[in-house]
Write a protein that binds this DNA or RNA. Structure first.
Length: 591
RNA sequence: GUCGCAAUAGCUCAGCUGGAUAGAGCAACGGUCUUCUAAACCGUAGGUCGAGAGUUCGAAUCUCUCUUGCGACACCA
């Protein structure tokens, strides 16, 4: 879409400008390319530049250099021992632009010019500020994200945390990569359970209780219904009739449903506020309830819908999948029928570059089927549908379930974390301003970070004390590192890092500088993999390097490198804050 | 039963498209606050990378078999 007032020529110009900017930046920051050229120039075409680039690796420790080329690959060509090849090549390489280049075993280790790199990296970060690491790979493409999706009249548990927090972080990462994410809370706000709920409310509920504590009371009615219907099966018939009335638009039932939905959403929003997560849309199942015919008709028109044991299914043999059941034998719709309607709606409304579903890994097979059906239907965005699975949360190895009482309320966990953060502040920094706000940021940050730091698909056995850790590899650790950086900058007062010579060649700062330089690449990779944990792990690496640095070298010493050191501290603060923000975690300036 | 995912230090996990002595964090033990906030830093100890075979100059990483655990297997969502 071309905005009014901009000619396509302008757009073209902007685009090419961006491309140039990216290439230019990469040339400046991509030391791998520099090393590739150095090696290429001493070979006689035995390897292409792509071969070399691909083979370059990062040594295990910085003591072994910044980039290394393993000479094994040349052993066959030269008919010599890799060690010898490495030694020979080092003799020929022009070392002028490096600190040093040395052969160690079969490896050629390149040590970059620390002063020059530091100057480049720090200048870039301070100039670009929070936009450091931003790229335009997404070209503004829309990306609806199906996430969170709690059920109306049921509490939000730790299980919902994962979808919410992962989806939110992926949205942030997408934006950083030039996409336009659309966070959609696909509420479970329709279905026969509302018949049950309305019946239960009328029998055992009252308005005041629901107003006082909506979720807990609604759940109570719902649970009671399930206890009672064992002895009184006629309740189920009543519930079915009530839901039918609701579907037919009966005024009283619709009013009740709207009310339940509204109070549930109000209570959900309190938790979302605490988490700092906002949604763009709340198009739940009810929203799609009247939009299912179109999908069914497309399937019919294309001859994809066939009868099987009385039900309507789509055969998916050619995808090596079981048939997808679209309509029940009584003609009723199913989960997938609504998801088809949803996909059509999103396809038409957003023309998505990608279509993301942040849903538990137990639904992996289902999403394969959904994607296959949409591909068969010829939906444009079907090929770019990605299920983003995440691991199960269990308690003592068992699945959470409301009925069996194995439920962990997210709100309680968040409150526990905030309370603990308050205690810590009272102990460690009692004079802190806006304690409550910081306690919230730290407590909630610990929970969010704890969820995001490991690979998405890992299962988590919930142990409260594991969640409430503020030491070691945790959110508060990264927040603390950022707060310390800010504290140093405050103490520096009017001393300016902008005018400083950034040629910091202090070896103790090198680990931090190389970490800073990695950020843009991590941003791209995390986007490609839909993996917030890459950002979380990166932030830990940077925080660790910085903590080590300032524990061993004093920043605020008046010498000719003071400006450079302040530049480093400023850059660390910028990047740590941005990394945390990508995870959806706040970065207080003091804690 | 079929398919999918996992198995790395006491615990929780990293380990990028195969590469140099397998790394963190907790927990344990020991050190560092009159010097930019000790939510930190430094050190010690801790491992047949589930088992076996194969591919390779080289395997925690790739292939196969097996074991164990978790999940999914149409009229729930």
């Amino acid at each position: 879409m071309v905005p009014r007032g901009y000619s396509s020529l302008t757009i073209f110009y902007c685009k090419s400008f961006f491309v140039d900017l990216i290439i230019w930046r990469k040339m400046r920051m991509d030391y791998k390319a520099q090393v590739t050229n150095s090696i290429l120039s001493v070979l006689n075409g035995e390897l292409t530049s792509a071969d070399i680039y691909e083979k370059l690796e990062q040594p295990k420790t910085l003591a072994m250099g910044d980039l290394a080329f393993p000479a094994f690959v040349l052993a066959k060509v030269f008919h010599k021992a890799p060690n010898q090849i490495a030694a020979d090549l080092v003799e020929k390489i022009d070392q002028a632009s490096y600190e040093k280049v040395e052969a160690k075993g079969a490896y050629i280790n390149f040590f970059l010019d620390k002063g020059k790199v530091a100057s480049n990296v720090l200048t870039t970060i301070i100039e670009e500020g929070s936009t450091y690491g931003q790229n335009e790979n997404g070209k503004g493409g829309n990306v609806p994200i199906d996430m969170s999706s709690p059920n109306i009249a049921k509490p939000i548990s730790m299980g919902h945390l994962r979808s919410t927090v992962i989806g939110n972080s992926i949205a942030n990462i997408l934006r950083k990569n030039g996409y336009h994410p659309i966070k959609d809370n696909h509420l479970g706000d329709w279905g026969t359970q509302f018949g049950k709920l309305i019946v239960a409310y009328r029998k055992w509920g009252n308005e005041d209780d629901v107003k006082k504590d909506p979720i807990n009371n609604l759940v109570k009615y719902y649970v009671k219904f399930h206890q009672e219907d064992k002895a009184h099966p006629e309740l189920d018939d009543e519930a079915r009739e009530t839901f039918k009335k609701l579907e037919d638009g009966d005024k009283e039932e619709v009013e009740l449903w709207k009310w339940f939905r509204r109070v549930s959403l109000e209570s959900f929003n309190k938790i979302y506020d605490k988490l700092g997560v906002k949604f763009d849309t709340y198009n739940g199942e009810a929203f799609y309830n009247d939009k299912m015919d179109e999908g069914i008709n497309i399937l019919k028109d294309k001859g994809l819908l066939v009868e099987s044991q009385g039900a309507q299914v789509v055969n998916l043999d050619k995808y090596d999948l079981n048939p997808a059941l679209i309509l029940k034998s009584d003609g009723a719709t199913l989960y997938i029928t609504r998801d088809i309607a949803t996909a059509i709606y999103r396809d038409r409304t957003y023309q998505p570059a990608m279509n993301l579903y942040v849903v538990g890994s137990e639904q992996t097979y289902y999403f394969k089927q959904l994607k296959a059906v949409l591909l068969e239907m010829g939906l444009h965005s079907a090929a770019n549908l990605h299920h983003i699975p995440f691991g199960l949360i269990t308690v003592n190895g068992k699945k959470l379930s409301t009925r069996s009482g194995r439920i962990i309320l997210l709100d309680e966990v968040l409150n526990d974390a905030i309370e603990l953060a308050e205690q810590q502040i009272a102990e460690k920094n009692p004079d802190l301003e806006n304690k409550e706000e910081v306690a919230k940021q730290v407590g909630v940050g610990a929970i969010i970070f704890g969820d995001l730091k490991n690979e998405r698909t890992n299962n988590i056995d919930f142990v409260l004390e594991d969640q409430l850790k503020f030491e070691g590899e945790t959110g508060p650790y990264v927040q603390y590192s950022h707060a310390r950086a800010e504290s140093i900058l405050r103490k520096a007062g009017s001393l300016n890092f902008h005018t400083a010579d950034k040629a910091l060649d202090d070896p103790s700062a090198w680990e931090t500088i190389t970490a800073l330089n990695e950020f843009p690449g991590i941003v791209e990779s995390a986007c490609k993999d839909f993996e917030p944990s890459e950002i979380a792990k990166y932030s830990l690496r940077l925080a660790k390097a910085f903590n080590k640095y300032y524990a061993h070298s004093k920043v605020l010493v008046k010498d000719d490198k003071l400006g450079a050191r302040l530049g480093l501290v400023k850059a660390v603060s910028i990047v740590l804050k941005e990394a945390l923000n990508l995870l959806g975690v706040q970065a207080p300036d003091a804690m």
